[in-house]
Structure formats: C-alpha cells, structure tokens
C-alpha cells in the first residue's frame, strides 16, 4: 500500500527527505499534476508527532519547488494505480486549488483569550450565562486584534473555538514575500496588547485552504 502526502505541480523530486517510517518518496504524474507517496509492505500511522512531522517535512520540501496541496494525515491508498485514478478523476479540481495556493504559505495565529478568574462563583445558570457573554466579548476582542493581519493575507480561515480551550485560532494564506511583514505585524500586535498572548507559527502547507469551499 502507499501513503500519500500531497498533490503538486512540481513533477520531479530533488533531494527529497524520506517520508513516514523512512519510506523513500516516489511520484506519479498525470497531465502535469503529480501525487507524491511512499510504498510500504504494511503501514500503521498512529498520530505520533514524529510521523506528523515527517508528513509536514515532505509537504514543506515540495513547496520549495512548486504549488502543493497537502493531503490530510493518514491518507493511504492500495497502490500507485489507485492514486493515478484519483489524479485522473479529480485533476481539474486539483488544478484549480493549486492555482489558488500557488506562491503562498499558511501561517497560524492564536490569541489567548482573557477570561477572568471565576472568583465569585454564582448560581450555576447565572454563572454559565455570564461565561457565555464573556466568551462572546472575548472573541470580538480577538477579532479586533487580528483585523490588521487580514489585509496581508490572500485568504483567511477561522477555526471554531473548541470547547474547553481558551484560544482563538485563525489561519492565513500569505504570499511567501509577505511572511516577514506578517510576522512583524504579529509582533507589533503583541506589543500593543501586552495582556494577550499571541502566537504565530509557520510557514505550513496550505492545509486550511484546499477544501474548494465545503468540507
């Protein structure tokens, strides 16, 4: 079986890293679009950080040579022919998505929400209402803080705040040449908002910008 990392218009591999479980990379091409994979006799891909980084390392390398659509972690096909069939069937969709992300990387920004210490614990329902109102205000505040970043990005994707977490997370599709100005803007926002904790990671493959609208 094969583990598939990405779809790309960079057809040839150069000095490529190894993939998951040290599998050597191979590519199969169909009408100018390639699928990059490694072959394995047997394959288990627990979401181990080492394997996750191996996947991302391949995507990162491919992005140096062309436009890349990273696949979701854990995509396994029976053989290269199955991948060729996917390229044949979905080639037009992939070409469109590749044109959207070409020349861009994804940057991830998190804003730590400023929820207050629940010092006075009122009755349950009142407390929950207060917390919900507080959460909405916090999200609005995070929105205002992040607003200056959006003009620097070609596209923006907001992740829903997960239950039990305290951060707002947003993804930005940013032209490579804009990565430094973007990072400088994040630093400026942090300096202007010392009460918030703002993080920025990347560049990542454009994972949040490859669904073609509707997942």
């Amino acid at each position: 079986m094969i583990y598939v990392y990405a779809i790309t218009d960079a057809i040839e591999l150069h000095d490529e890293p190894s993939g998951v479980h040290d599998g050597p990379l191979q590519a199969i091409e169909h009408e100018g679009i390639a699928g990059v994979f490694s072959s394995h006799d047997q394959l288990e891909v627990p979401s181990d950080p080492e394997l996750l980084w191996a996947h991302e390392r391949v995507v990162d390398h491919l992005m140096e040579h062309g436009a890349v659509l990273p696949l979701r972690f854990g995509t396994v096909l029976s053989d290269p022919e199955a991948l060729r069939a996917v390229l044949d069937k979905d080639g037009a969709r992939f070409a469109l998505l590749l044109s959207r992300v070409r020349g861009c990387v994804e940057l991830a920004v998190r804003v730590g929400l400023t929820s207050s210490e629940p010092g006075v614990v009122a009755g349950g329902a009142d407390y929950m209402r207060e917390r919900l109102a507080e959460r909405e205000q916090e999200e609005d505040a995070a929105d205002r803080v992040l607003a200056p970043l959006r003009p620097l990005a070609r596209a923006t994707a907001r992740r829903p705040v997960q239950a039990g977490t305290t951060t707002v997370s947003e993804s930005y599709l940013v032209p490579r040449a804009t990565v430094e100005p973007f990072a400088a803007e994040v630093r400026a926002l942090q300096a202007q908002n010392p009460g918030l904790s703002i993080s920025c990671t990347g560049p990542w493959g454009p994972y949040s910008f490859v669904d073609g609208g509707g997942r």
Binding site: P46, V86, G205
Partner: peptide, 28 residues
C-alpha cells in the same frame, strides 16, 4: 503550540481523497 498547530492542520485540514482509500489514523 507548534505541535497543536500541526495537529490542527494535518488531522483536520488538507485534501481528503474520495474513493478507494483507508484513513489509517489510530488514536487521534
């Protein structure tokens, strides 16, 4: 933070292939 940003992207983002595939991710 880098690790959770990685997880957010690789496990929840990226192209999902249709058809004859196995998502072999365990204990996500």
């Amino acid at each position: 933070i880098a690790l959770i940003d990685l997880l957010d992207r690789l496990l929840d983002g990226g192209v999902v292939l249709a058809g004859d595939i196995t998502l072999a991710v365990a204990d996500v």
